[in-house]
Amino acid sequence: MSFKGRRVKNKPKNSEQGLAYLLLSPVLILVGGLILVPVLGTFITSFFRNVTFMPPAKFIGIRNYARIIKDPQFWQSLRFTVAFSAVAVALESILGMFYALVINEKFKFRGIMRAIVLIPWAIPTIVSARIWQLMYNYSYGLLNYVLVHFHLCTHPINWLGSPVSAFFSIVTADVWKTAPFMAILFLAGLQAIPQSLYEAARVDGASISQQFWRITLPLLKPIIVIALIFRTIDSLRIFDLIYVLTGGGPGGSTSSVSMYGFKSYILGDFGYGSTVSVITFLLIFVFTVIYLKVGNFSGGLKENER
């Protein structure tokens, strides 16, 4: 493009640009007001001692952050949250992939099957958490009933009673609920893969597993990375499931970072609660960056472009 040409084009473009900004402004204001302002507010509040019963709010620098680093309960919550996310997301991905591969195949009643797979995802977490709570119930729960009734166990099991079994009980409930979410995303990805690739592979004599590892997985990679990011972000904020199932027990071993922050808000300590929120944000940020780097996300797209 020549220098001259550009200049000529510039003039009408300016007014057009102005109009564009004008038309965009409601969205910008909305986004700014609804997201940017509260987010900045949280960052700012995290540097204050802002407790409802200790007025007035006072600037205290990074003392909230110093306090959080020294609090063993915070580290306990962080360890639990990260461990939970790692285990739950891994299981959800594997199970979700399995679901997706099954419901991607053509078979009778496929539509019904797809709908059934999605049901757990459609149930609000708080409701499914209550259902799981009833199933885990020591005296009247379904699980213990089956175990004892069919003589698989002599005594009922206290599912939420030890840190390890409580951990896996929560993971199970979470996997049951969110594996379908992974399945939807993977299914969308699977359907975008051209059938011709598989036909060509079959002609070349590739086995089913070769087709999966060489065609399906690489082409699904961008979707997998996105799904992992969404699920990881979500599970790092786990709250409702734990709130219903264990309340953070036994002995605080299943308290998550969100739960930890929530308790500060309940106390009326908004400064410290904000600090927890900021740290949650940073945690999620780190994980997202790692996923994007490891997933070689932008690189993958460029390759596709070629």
Binding site: I35, P38, V39, G41, T42, T45, S46, F48, N50, T52, P55, P56, A57, I226, I229, F230, I233, L236, R237, S258, G261, F262, Y265, F270, G273, S274, V276, S277, V278, T280, F281, I284, F285, T288
Partner: peptide, 19 residues
């Protein structure tokens, strides 16, 4: 992804309580 991340902070968006 950015929006989802930012929404994580939403929990903390309580306005400062002036006494």
């Amino acid at each position: 992804v950015m929006i989802a991340m930012v929404s994580a902070v939403f929990v903390g968006c309580k306005s400062q309580t002036l006494s």
